[in-house]
Write a protein that binds this DNA or RNA. Structure first.
Lengths: 227, 227
DNA sequence: CGTCCATATGGCATGTTGTGCCAACAAGGC
DNA sequence: GCCTTGTTGGCACAACATGCCATATGGACG
């Protein structure tokens, strides 16, 4: 998710300073809050006039920060909406990580995917429709793909933690790629349709189907019952 | 692959002017030749100093064209190498398209993938190592992903032509996504290693394995023997 | 051969992008 | 209080990307 070398180093440094408690630093949380606020501002402008017709300066002004600061949070203008696009995937991975280890991986993948694609409240519904608007902006394709590339990489970590040592890394990589592709295709298919946020053709409907089909037959190392 | 609205219209116009013969227009072929030459020039420079440290003006100068013309061929500097990165995938799709319709799809996918990943001559070997260099440049990630997004979309067309009418478009989409992911993961894995261009760990080795695993269990509509 | 039209190219101007650098300032630890 | 660390904004500036126009180039047709 981090592209400029300098900023990468800074962020990594920050992260290592996190206290023993699992919680991130105060400054870090502030950063995230600011980042999210910029993201919302950018999303509103992008949805209104399109990403092409929106300048970085306008986003910065609307968010109440200077242009220079904007570029400290996002190295590319379009990436300003990445936190929003990535939020769903993050939730997915959190659910997956906390799902009990004795449930078969395929099932865990599918269940957490479906759940993360099911809007829990009105805010989540709104977020999905925003996502759809953003997905339809051709200028944001690159960001969308970057987000999934990041997702896939993080998922590799989550899966690796869940499987016995000594498993071929390529297996893990393929599983992560398949699962990520399932989510991506589901959302792209939905974005190209007029389907609502629940019911047939909805993200959770498509997400479940995609995940099922793409992980069928995937040799997922240890199945709990028959290792 | 085409981003600016104006240029898109122009290219489409050109394409519609193509004569009845399957062959593209003369001007079109010239355009492609120029495009490829720019791509090679850019690849050499990117491989030498990295994409970050190479300006569009340098590429243009090295290719013997003006900066303005460069941006008529590629709307983003990094995309200059896209034709090279896409060449392998194009070959793959060509092989697939001309593979007989009575061979099972999974087998056709795997065979053409392996073949397209097997360098036929010294030039092809060189091309693969160039590809590896480019893949290692973080600045070219976006282009790499764009290329695969394009591949996936074209593959959907090829697959749709091969399967009976009335098949759920989502099925086709998933198959295309899985196959494209297989190629992508194989090449990324190879690029992250020091493996040679043949033998274990080579692109064709990994490509075969990835394609097999990701398409196992994929419900690929009509299997020729038991439709 | 000359005319016409479509396309390719280059040069120029210009708005936008993205970054390095510096000075000012807020926050937390000692 | 002080010092360290990190954030912010302003400024300058190179690079990016595009619109516009003037100029070839090259094929089609009379």
């Amino acid at each position: 998710m981090c592209h400029s070398g300098a900023m990468c180093r800074d962020l990594d440094r920050l992260r290592t300073l996190a206290p023993v408690t699992g919680r991130p630093t105060l400054t870090q949380r502030r950063r995230d809050a600011t980042r999210l606020e910029i993201a919302r501002t950018a999303a509103a402008l992008f949805a209104e006039r399109g990403a092409e017709a929106t300048t970085a300066e306008e986003i910065a002004a609307a968010a109440g920060i200077s242009l220079r600061t904007f570029y400290r949070y996002f190295s590319v203008k379009e990436d300003a909406v990445a936190p929003l696009l990535a939020a769903g995937g993050q939730r997915w991975m959190d659910l997956l990580a906390e799902s009990p280890a004795d449930v078969p991986l395929r099932e865990a993948l599918e269940r957490s995917a479906v759940e993360s694609l099911t809007p829990a409240d009105d805010a989540a519904v709104e977020a999905m429709y925003w996502t759809r608007d953003l997905l339809r902006d051709p200028r944001l394709d690159g960001t969308w793909q970057k987000v999934h590339a990041g997702s896939e990489e993080r998922l590799r970590g989550v899966l690796a933690a869940r499987c016995p040592d000594g498993v071929d890394p390529l297996e893990v990589r393929l599983a992560a790629a398949a699962a990520t592709a399932a989510i991506r295709v589901a959302l792209e298919q939905w974005a190209g349709s007029d389907a609502a946020v629940t019911g047939p053709g909805s993200p959770q409907d498509l997400g479940g189907r995609c995940m099922r089909e793409l992980t069928v037959g995937l040799r997922l190392w240890a199945q709990p019952a028959g290792d």
